[in-house]
C-alpha cells in the first residue's frame, strides 16, 4: 500500500462541560487511501465528531487530540491556520446533512460555487463561472444555467444537496467527508444523489469518508466500514463481508432492521453490553 491519504491515530474529542468532561471520540485510528470508507453508528456514537475533528470543525468547548492526524503527509495538528484554511474546501471538503442549513440563503447557487472556487484557485470570474456551470452539469442538473441563478430556497432538497456536492467538488478535492448526505432526502432522490456522488468519486479518484447511521446503505455504497459505538471503533470490516461481522453490536444493528425479505416478529432488539463501551 502506498502512503495513505489520511492517517488518523488515537483521535480523541473531549467536551469540557459544566457537568464534567465528556469524551465523544475515544481513540479512533484508521488509514484512508483513495477509497470509500463508511463510518456507521447510532446517535451519540461519535461518528460525526470524528468527521468534524479531521476538518478542525469541532465546536467549542471541544478539544481534539491525536497521536497522529496527517493528511497527505501534512500534520493537521501542527499546521498553521492558513494551511488549514487552504486545505479545508481546497483539498478536503465536507457535505453536510441538510442543504437547507449549509447553503447561504441570500446568495444564488452559482455565486456560492464561484466563491468556493475562487477562494482556493486563482481564476478569473469568467473561468470560475465556466467551472461552476460544468460542475452543475456534472451533478446532473437538467438546466445548469437556470439552477445557477436560483436561490437555495427555490430548489428542492435533492437539487440543493446536488448543488452542495457541486460546490464541494468544484475545487477537485482529494478527500470528501460526507456526513449523512442523504438522510434529509426521500429514498428515490437519495439514490440518485448517491449515484452522482459515486460517479464523481470514482471518476476523480478521491478518498471518501461516508458517515451515516444506515448500515445497509453504507455497506452497499462503501468499500470498507468502521462501526462506531460510544466513541470507539468496535469493528472494521470489508463492506462485502458485512454478513460475517463478529462484533455483537454490528450483528445486532443488522438484525434489528425490519426487511421486506423476511417477516421476523418480534424484531430482535439490541442488548447493549456495557463491556462494549469499555
Amino acid at each position: 500500500m502506498t502512503k495513505p491519504l489520511l492517517d488518523v491515530e488515537d483521535l480523541r474529542v473531549r467536551f469540557h462541560l459544566r457537568t464534567g468532561t465528556v469524551e465523544a471520540v475515544r481513540g479512533v485510528s484508521f488509514q484512508l487511501g483513495r477509497e470509500r470508507l463508511g463510518i456507521v453508528g447510532e446517535s451519540g456514537s461519535g461518528k460525526s465528531q470524528t468527521g468534524r475533528a479531521i476538518l478542525g470543525l469541532t465546536p467549542p468547548p471541544g478539544e481534539v487530540t491525536a497521536k497522529r492526524l496527517a493528511f497527505d503527509g501534512i500534520d493537521l495538528q501542527k499546521a498553521s491556520k492558513r494551511t488549514l484554511r487552504d486545505l479545508r474546501g481546497g483539498r478536503i471538503s465536507m457535505v453536510m446533512q441538510d442543504p437547507k442549513y449549509s447553503l447561504n440563503p441570500v446568495m444564488t447557487i452559482g455565486e456560492q460555487i464561484i466563491e468556493a472556487y475562487q477562494a482556493h484557485r486563482k481564476a478569473s470570474k469568467a473561468e470560475a463561472r465556466d467551472r461552476a456551470l460544468a460542475m452543475l452539469e456534472a451533478v446532473k442538473m437538467r438546466d445548469p444555467t437556470r439552477v445557477f441563478s436560483l436561490y437555495p430556497h427555490e430548489v428542492s432538497g435533492g437539487m440543493g444537496q446536488r448543488a452542495m456536492i457541486a460546490m464541494m467538488l468544484v475545487t477537485d478535492p482529494d478527500l470528501l467527508i460526507a456526513d449523512e448526505p442523504t438522510s434529509a432526502l426521500d429514498v428515490t432522490v437519495s439514490m440518485e444523489v448517491l449515484r452522482i456522488l459515486d460517479e464523481l468519486v470514482t471518476e476523480r479518484g478521491m478518498g471518501l469518508i461516508f458517515i451515516s447511521h444506515d448500515l445497509k446503505l453504507v455497506s452497499s455504497f462503501c468499500d470498507r466500514v468502521l462501526v462506531m459505538y460510544a466513541g470507539r471503533v468496535v469493528e472494521e470490516l470489508e463492506a462485502k463481508n458485512l454478513r460475517d461481522a463478529q462484533h455483537p453490536y454490528t450483528q445486532g444493528l443488522m438484525r434489528c432492521l425490519p426487511t421486506l425479505a423476511d417477516d421476523v416478529r418480534p424484531l430482535p432488539t439490541l442488548n447493549r453490553d456495557p463491556a462494549w463501551a469499555l
Partner: peptide, 8 residues
C-alpha cells in the same frame, strides 16, 4: 481542569 463540579 475546567468542568470540575462546583461543589466538591
Amino acid at each position: 481542569m475546567a468542568g470540575a463540579p462546583p461543589f466538591p
